[in-house]
């Protein structure tokens, strides 16, 4: 058993569209420990989205190995990846990506449906997650009836309801005003304190500054890997 929760070993990701193969990732190695708070930074085209897809088990490396909690992702099939995503990974997106026809509660319950959790259990755990995020009185609302900040908190509730090991946030504050953005960022800090590993993907230095560690990506390679000392 590795001491790292996330371990990338010389990972390549090559796309074979068109005449020339495109190497989106070129030999990336990265280790992240349990309950770290990491920001991955890079401009568009740097390979940070590809890196995020890999870390979130939406994709597999073309070459090299990805160990998540000691399991090698590289050799898993689609359904096994789906199960790993369901149990180990939570996603938070820039555009929230809630299902518009469902209530906040139903949205949060969805990962538990796919995990095969009993209905009473599902309702209980989803309600608890929403309450923790201050949405106890908004459970029956549709996403369209909620503000951006509330929607993002529903999305975070959905991402943590099945107790994942890592939480991947892709530009989570990109669609929010600065005040709401600060609240959301504070939530991530709180989650890392509760033991969840948060990986933030952003191009915004100010957002990245909330993390304890910044990994800069450019041209499919890791450019810098900095720990930020924070005065407690």
């Amino acid at each position: 058993m590795s001491e790292f929760l996330v371990e990338l070993q010389d990972v390549w990701r090559t796309y074979n569209q068109g005449a020339e193969p495109v190497h989106a990732l070129q030999g990336v190695s990265l280790q992240i420990k349990e309950s770290e708070y990491v920001a991955i930074m890079g401009t568009s085209g740097s390979g940070k989205s590809t890196l995020m897809n890999l870390l979130g088990c939406l994709d597999r490396p073309s070459q090299g190995h990805y160990l998540l909690a000691g399991t090698d992702i590289s050799s898993r099939n689609e359904d096994e990846l789906a199960e790993i995503r369901n149990r180990m990974v939570g996603f938070v997106f820039q555009q929230f990506n809630l299902l518009p026809s469902m209530s906040a509660l139903d949205n949060v319950m969805l990962p538990l449906v796919y995990a095969g959790v009993q209905k009473e259990q599902r309702i209980m755990r989803a309600q608890q997650a929403l309450k923790e995020l201050g949405l106890g009185n908004r459970m029956e609302h549709k996403p369209s009836e909620l503000s951006g900040g509330q929607q993002q908190r529903v999305a975070i509730a959905r991402s943590i309801v099945n107790k994942p090991r890592i939480l991947l946030a892709d530009e989570p504050t990109g669609a929010l005003d600065s005040h709401t953005a600060k609240e959301i960022m504070a939530l991530f800090t709180k989650l890392t304190e509760e033991g969840i590993t948060v990986i933030l993907v952003t191009h915004d230095p100010e957002t990245a500054a909330c993390a304890r560690r910044i990994v800069k990506v450019r041209d499919g390679k890791i450019l810098e890997d900095l720990m930020i000392g924070k005065v407690q």
Partner: peptide
């Protein structure tokens, strides 16, 4: 998009 979201949060093929 909805199918993508469902898959991201762990929906299997079946």
């Amino acid at each position: 998009k909805e199918i993508g979201i469902r898959k991201a949060i762990g929906a299997k093929y079946n």
